[in-house]
């Protein structure tokens, strides 16, 4: 079982003695895993709020003169039960963090792929070179849609009747070529825009579009 390293090098002697006394008490519990260590690295460093930020530790726990709503603070005078509760919670958080697969290194935003569940709106910046779309009519249709208007993947999927994954693939392809602008517009349900000028209303327009496609064999 890994030990968890607790540091108190910045505290005054009376507080060091107090914390050490608490720890002797806590260590009666066989599941208690914290140990006071003399030097870094520290999983947690307990400091006075006057201590500057440039201390290095997994988490900095700050002692404050009055009760604070900020996370990772404990009020003075330090109480055994408060510190114990805080350490249990910190242990739990640390264990969870260690069980999680390490998140991949932070990549520059342009390298990140758009996930099919993304709720961003995508807008084409420039018409893509022919090699990107090929003569694939579905891709041409998707590029055309977002050349006109910023759309979410689910909107693209609904209009083109293609799977979300295919829409995401096309957006990623275009994005890889630097042709996509991401717009994080307020997330609202798919809405009907204004009717196009030549059509009485949206449903007339929709049935017209599908009528033409039928006629052309699309």
């Amino acid at each position: 079982m890994t030990i968890l390293r607790f540091g108190i090098p910045h505290l005054s002697d009376p507080e060091v003695r107090l914390v050490k006394a608490f720890f002797r008490l806590y260590s009666q519990d066989p599941t208690f895993r914290w140990t006071i260590v003399e030097g870094p690295p520290y999983d947690v460093l307990l400091v006075d709020e006057s201590v500057s930020e440039d201390v290095v530790a997994g988490t900095v726990l700050t002692l404050t003169p009055v009760k604070s709503e900020l996370p990772n603070t404990l009020e003075r005078p330090l109480r055994s039960d408060h510190l114990e509760a805080w350490l249990k919670k910190a242990e739990y958080d640390l264990r969870n963090a260690r069980l999680q697969p390490q998140p991949p290194e932070e990549q520059p935003i342009d390298e990140q792929r758009i996930d099919p569940t993304s709720s961003s709106h995508f807008k084409l910046r420039r018409w893509p070179p022919p090699a990107l779309l090929g003569s694939n009519p579905v891709r041409v249709r998707m590029a055309t849609l977002i050349s006109r208007r910023a759309l979410r993947l689910d909107e693209m999927a609904a209009i083109t009747e293609q799977p979300l994954a295919e829409c995401a693939a096309v957006v990623n392809l275009l994005r890889g070529a630097g042709l996509i602008e991401i717009q994080d517009l307020p997330d609202k349900p798919m809405t009907m825009g204004r009717a196009g000028g030549r059509f009485a209303d949206q449903s007339v327009k929709q049935s017209f579009v599908s009528g033409v496609r039928n006629k052309l064999g699309l």
């Binding site: 006109r148 759309l151 909107e155 209009i159 196009g196 579009v209």
Partner: peptide, 19 residues
């Protein structure tokens, strides 16, 4: 020619949906 016309239709559809 069909693809050119379909591209016009997609623009009509884009005006129907979206933000």
């Amino acid at each position: 020619v069909v693809l050119l016309i379909d591209t016009l239709l997609a623009q009509l559809e884009a005006n129907t949906f979206g933000a």
